[in-house]
């Protein structure tokens, strides 16, 4: 499995996700600077967390228009797996690869803490190692993670099984109190229609080492390692 982690000016979790990928695949991904002329031939493209272009203008908006994203979009349309985490999710939404948008948290404050996530489907190359309904504990760290889309879009995402993760309580109950940012229908992560693109706000890469509190995020990277051998 070959992976490229795209590094934008202002990305800051590229090494976190590289470490997580290395733990699951045994191989270090290529870190690709956003202006490097060519995206290597890879099985997986990762858009990491951070503050690409300082999140100026609007989170993810400038990065979504950087030249490398044209190539990422082209690869995604050809079926290459793409995952965007946190700022990467924002960029995927801004680039049109995923529906919806991420608004400022309802609290209007940055939030960094562990949350519980319910795996909404194990039927994807990102979540096959999980059970549908399984509850994970992983951290969030963002100021703009409030997922929004109109009701018709949300209905369609739910109908087509495109909701990947929802914020929930420790027992799996999807409730307002467990929602750290005000996301519509507690949505923490979504797939595109063909399920080769995933965007999520939480940081599974920061939950892949027992010394750091949780290994619940590891299933995502293990799933990719299985699927993209």
């Amino acid at each position: 499995m070959k992976t490229a982690v795209i590094v934008f000016p202002g990305s800051n979790r590229e090494h976190d996700v590289a470490d997580a990928l290395r733990r699951s695949t045994g191989k270090a991904p290529a870190l690709v600077w956003h202006r490097d002329s060519e995206l290597p031939d890879v099985d997986l493209v990762v858009l990491p967390g951070g503050f690409a272009y300082g999140d100026y203008l609007r989170t993810g908006a400038i990065a979504a228009r950087s030249p490398v994203m044209n190539e990422v979009i082209r690869r995604a349309e050809k079926g290459v797996a793409v995952v965007g985490i946190c700022n990467g999710f924002q960029i995927l939404c801004e680039s049109g690869l995923l529906p919806g948008v991420l608004l400022s948290n309802a609290s209007l404050k940055f939030v960094c803490r562990d949350v519980h996530l319910r795996v909404e489907t194990s039927q994807s190359l990102f979540t096959a190692r999980y059970q549908t309904g399984e509850v994970l504990r992983v951290p969030v760290a963002h100021h703009d993670g409030n997922y929004f889309a109109d009701d018709a879009t949300l209905d369609r995402l739910e109908d087509k099984g495109q909701v990947a993760f929802r914020y929930c309580a420790a027992d799996g109950a999807v409730q307002t109190a467990a929602n750290p940012n005000g996301s519509a229908r507690n949505i923490a992560g979504v797939f595109n229609a063909t399920k080769n693109v995933l965007g999520l706000m939480p940081h599974p890469e920061n939950a892949t080492d027992s010394l750091l509190g949780s290994t619940d995020g590891r299933g995502l990277f293990d799933s990719l390692a299985d699927a993209l051998v």
Binding site: N12, G49, K109, C112, P139, A141, L211
Partner: peptide, 27 residues
């Protein structure tokens, strides 16, 4: 206060805020 700080980025925070001392693992 500390939930407004990203205390986990870089992925090496072994002991988080709220304890006697924080511990950050070396890469």
């Amino acid at each position: 206060i500390w939930e407004q700080y990203d205390h986990l980025v870089r992925g090496h925070t072994v002991q988080r805020p709220g304890g006697d001392a924080a511990i950050v693992r070396l890469p």
